[in-house]
Design a protein around this nucleic acid. Structure first.
Lengths: 208, 208
DNA sequence: GCAAATTAATGATTTATTCAAG
DNA sequence: CTTGAATAAATCATTAATTTGC
């Protein structure tokens, strides 16, 4: 095999550092144009494609969450077994609203505003907390469709499928309703299950 | 702005019929070029984009699985409550390997080979059982990357990011190891759902 | 009959899991 | 064992059915 980049992307230390820096600074779900820019920038440090950037953030975010969850669970179990009477019910009785397993604890969560050291000239990366809704797409051999940008403002409705041609994307920095962060999963993926219904919530108590 | 199709795609009866037909005939995860072709074809029946096709298959597949799971759970619960001594331990003691909730029972599963009535001229759609691995991508404002085509044949390895320009894609029909289907989920997800239903559970004999 | 109010379906997004290369 | 890549599950959001009070 001559060259065929048949192998998966292997980030160079520089690329990794930059990505981590961005992540540390709050970037979680870069939108399409951000990905484009990041890719372009990182290209100078080695071979890289947009999808690599996309996947990197996806995975990094997921594994971060996972790590946290694990740690929290750990410390919970630890506390439970060692300080039973002290902390046990604290967790169980509190009202933990958790629509689903998205529960990043506040002390870490999607941290506060912070400037991203790169792409200042480009603008859109200056992301803070709320991730842009980026739509998943299937590759389609070099042919793709456009990205949805929720222009939603106050409540809902008014979606729009805008097509940005240049890299000057509008970067509508508002968007999503800003989910409430949950303290602890009531439902967690771990304890999973919970009826999403509004009625007839019969026997969905356990599982696992 | 011309005419902002601000609404979500609403499949026409013809489009739906065709999609369902393909699904019935075994198509589950169309790859990029297949999506392109399908989209092109369905376009003659109304507005449609590749992503719509992609999402449709994703959702249809998932909800099919869900329906099955529900049904199985139902019959299990029924059996358990009515034929307690007969079947109870059969399930519990058997070794139900279930890595996760992907458990399509064999008696239905991904059905047998069958020809798809459309796109015969194109070839690749003639899919039978095993789905092509199609990669998820993020929108990137009109800029996308290529689709991965697993050229894997015998076992694994040898990925390739090929870019097909024409609609003559290679259609490598083998691919994934063909997961072992699980009979019953050890891990829950199964017991979930059903709770989402409500009172008048009129079946989905949807009239379109 | 017919809208507002509900509920069920389903299109579109996001998150969690799994696979497998290195 | 780590992590890039890929897939499935869970969820959100909007539209179509359906119900309900008039």
């Amino acid at each position: 095999m001559p060259q065929a980049p048949t192998t998966r992307w292997c980030p160079t230390p520089e690329q990794l550092m930059i990505l981590e820096e961005m992540y540390r600074n709050g970037l979680r779900t870069p939108n399409a144009s951000q990905i484009q820019q990041i890719t372009a920038h990182l290209s100078s440090y080695g071979r890289i494609e947009g999808k690599n950037v996309f996947y990197w953030f996806q995975n990094h975010k997921a594994r971060d969450r996972q790590k946290l969850r694990r740690r929290l669970t750990m410390s919970y179990l630890y506390a439970q077994s060692h300080l039973q009477n002290l902390v046990h019910n604290q967790f169980m009785d509190q009202g933990f609203v958790s629509p689903h397993s998205n529960f990043l604890p506040p002390f870490m969560g999607y941290q506060t505003t912070s400037t991203v050291p790169f792409f200042h000239q480009a603008g859109p990366i200056q992301q803070t907390v709320i991730p842009e809704p980026a739509s998943f797409l299937i590759g389609s051999d070099r042919c793709a469709w456009e990205t949805p940008h929720k222009m939603t403002h106050a409540n809902h409705a008014n979606h729009d499928w805008m097509m940005v041609v240049g890299s000057e994307s509008a970067a509508p920095s508002c968007c999503r309703p800003l989910k409430t962060l949950d303290l602890f999963p009531t439902k967690s993926t771990a304890l999973k299950e919970e009826c999403t219904s509004s009625k007839s919530a019969s026997s969905c108590t356990t599982a696992y």
